[in-house]
Amino acid sequence: MAPTAPVARNVAPAGTRQAWMRKDQIHTQKQFVFEKPSEVERKVPDAGVIDKPGVYELSTLPTGISKIHLIPGFIDSEQADWIFEQLLQDIPWGQRTHIRQEISFEEPRLTSWYGELPYTYSRLTMQPNPNWHPLLTMLKERIEEFTGYTFNSLLCNLYRNEKDSVDWHSDDEPSLGKNPVIASLSFGATRTFEMRKKPSPEENGDYTYVERLRIPLDHGTLLMMEGATQEDWQHRVPKEYHSRDARINLTFRIIYPESEGT
């Protein structure tokens, strides 16, 4: 007869079977169940509103303290009416044209510049204009006396209606120096001034969850932006869906020759 093939068999002595084979342990072992990790739900924060006079510290970061000072009624209503009409007529308003990716478009507002030095923002330069309107000089001196700061330049903005606006930006050009002080004086229709905190490096430029503020700027209101506000925050005046009359905004600032500003 041909030899038969060897047959594998359990040669372990009775009672020494491996533990994982025991019936009394098969049912008592804890079964592994996969559970998807719970995601932390992030909510878009509601925008805060600042509409009362006072000094507000917005944030404190390694760059410094970001601070604003809101002074409604800095110019009383009757005087503000007269100033608004004079500036509307006398300032040489103009509209700048931008070119991006070979497409030209006009700024959705009118502007005018006053100062001994040029001012460059959004890649366009406004040429020096030392011929200050006497009314603007008076307003500059009144703000300087009130705040203790001195200013040598002024950017004027005319928002003709609700369709005019300025997009998110910071006034952080090199010619403004470190931690610039901006004095913003408003006349005419109330428009909402919005601010948003710049995201941390971990957010990779995502502004979805950052802190936001809304500040209505009324006729004759002065808003001071100080400290690290331009370093750590952005601001804008958005378009609005409801009809708005004209608004003039005067932003007094200190301009340095660019070699000094940097």
Rank of each mutant, 00 (worst) to 15 (best):
P118M: 04
Y121R: 09
M224V: 03
L222D: 15
N179V: 01
T137G: 05
G115Q: 11
H69G: 03
E194A: 00
E57Q: 14
L117P: 10
I71Y: 10
I68T: 02
N249Y: 01
L155Y: 04
S170G: 12
E116A: 09
T28D: 04
E211M: 07
L124I: 11
I103E: 15
A228Y: 02
R253D: 08
I68Q: 00
E260H: 08
T120R: 13
L154R: 06
P199S: 07
S186H: 04
R109I: 10
V40S: 09
R253F: 08
W233E: 13
I99N: 13
Q230M: 08
K178T: 07
A189R: 04
K30F: 03
P199M: 10
L61A: 03
K197Q: 15
S200W: 04
V49E: 15
V7S: 07
S122V: 04
M126T: 09
D171T: 02
S104I: 05
E211D: 13
N152Q: 11
W82I: 11
N204Q: 15
T111L: 10
E203S: 09
W113M: 03
Y256R: 12
F34T: 02
G177E: 11
D46M: 04
R191H: 03
K140C: 09
E78F: 02
P199H: 05
L222I: 02
P108T: 07
A228D: 11
R123W: 00
E39C: 06
T208I: 03
I71M: 12
P130M: 01
G94E: 15
P134I: 05
F34K: 10
A19L: 15
S186G: 02
P62Y: 01
N249F: 01
E194R: 05
Y121S: 06
E102S: 07
E202C: 10
W93R: 05
I215L: 09
P13Q: 12
S77D: 13
D46K: 02
K36W: 06
R109P: 10
V55P: 05
Y119E: 14
P53T: 07
H69V: 13
P92F: 04
F34D: 11
L217G: 03
I103V: 15
R123D: 15
W113H: 06
L158V: 01
M138A: 14
Y241E: 15
L213P: 05
R160G: 06
M1K: 11
G188R: 01
S122D: 09
E78K: 08
I91Q: 08
E240G: 08
F32E: 15
P118Y: 05
I71A: 09
G177T: 05
T229L: 13
G188H: 04
I182R: 08
R196I: 14
D90L: 00
W93P: 00
Q95V: 14
L250P: 04
S175H: 03
R244I: 06
T4F: 07
L70K: 02
Q18R: 14
R142H: 09
A228Q: 08
